[in-house]
């Protein structure tokens, strides 16, 4: 019910497109298409990412068949790209392959950290916006870089909670709040989510959505974790809208102080 309420009264809009779920699913890391199929269904997602790679003739079945069957919109990424040039080229390939000008822009600096390379990322974002792409950049939790990406015309910014695949959660909540506080468009927490409470925290901090992959696809029970993430995103969003109580240093009774009986 909460999820339906959220859809009816609190639309999630990216670049003028409305989505029925604030949970965006990455499809990487799942051991089989059946596993990702069950996870997508349980997540209730309306948008999921794919990567672009050379055709492997030994593969049977396509992730696109699963995505199409679930009625989920596809968002190609530029995973693995190290330079702006590579990322722009990959986005152009994805546009022809998938007939979408939406792209999750990833330009990482090195294999060990998979952290975004800010210089290449901004360069690629500016170029792709100029070419008419709807650009959703995976970025550092850096409020200044997030601002620059939005100034460049990105449709959303997607700061990391912590490095890809670490499951370390949101390492710098203060920075995420800063990014949210001055955002011109959607902020989507992307990467580092380990479990449901991390996703709920992202939403409580004011993020508009959460993008995650490994936390679900590498969980012991991916479909069950997908359901947990969906509930967490909804709960976190409701808590954000409801407005949490301020933190206090000392206790404050909720029962009346007046009228205590003398016993």
């Amino acid at each position: 019910m909460a999820g339906q309420q959220q859809t009816a009264h609190d639309p999630f809009v990216i670049a003028g497109e409305e989505f029925g779920s604030r949970l965006i699913m990455g499809t990487g890391g799942a051991p089989s298409l059946d596993v990702i199929d069950a996870a997508l269904a349980a997540s209730g997602t309306a948008l999921c990412t794919v990567a672009m790679r050379r055709l492997d003739p030994s593969t049977t079945g396509s992730i696109l068949d699963v995505i199409d069957r679930r009625g989920v919109r596809v968002l190609p990424n530029t995973a693995g790209c190290r330079t702006a040039r590579e990322a722009v080229r990959t986005a152009e390939v994805a546009r022809e392959a998938l007939e979408t000008d939406w792209v999750k822009l990833e330009v990482v600096a090195d294999e060990r950290t998979l952290l975004p390379d800010p210089v290449e990322l901004l360069d690629a974002a500016q170029t792709l916006v100029g070419l008419g792409f709807t650009v959703l950049p995976y970025t550092n939790d850096d409020p200044v870089l997030a601002r620059r990406l939005q100034q460049a015309g990105c449709a959303a910014v997607m700061p990391l909670g912590s490095p890809i695949g670490t499951g370390l959660g949101i390492a710098n909540p203060h920075n995420i709040e800063l990014i949210v506080s001055e955002a011109r468009g959607p902020v989507i927490l992307d990467a580092g989510i380990g479990t449901a409470s991390d996703a709920a925290l992202a939403m409580e901090l004011g993020c508009d959505g959460v993008l995650l992959a490994s936390a679900v696809t590498r969980a012991q029970d991916p479909a069950r974790m997908a359901a947990a993430m969906a509930a967490a995103v909804t709960a976190g969003r409701l808590a954000r809208l409801a407005g949490r109580i301020p933190r206090r240093s000392h206790a404050q009774a909720s029962s009346p102080i007046e009228g205590m009986a003398v016993l």
Partner: peptide
């Protein structure tokens, strides 16, 4: 050169060309 989808029906491959055939796979 990325070949636009609209050109595929008329585009004929020639001897010696280098072709990358790329497709969507599972990915974050």
């Amino acid at each position: 050169e990325v070949v636009p989808r609209g050109s595929w029906p008329d585009y004929r491959l020639r001897d010696g060309q280098r072709v990358e055939l790329i497709t969507a796979v599972q990915g974050g």
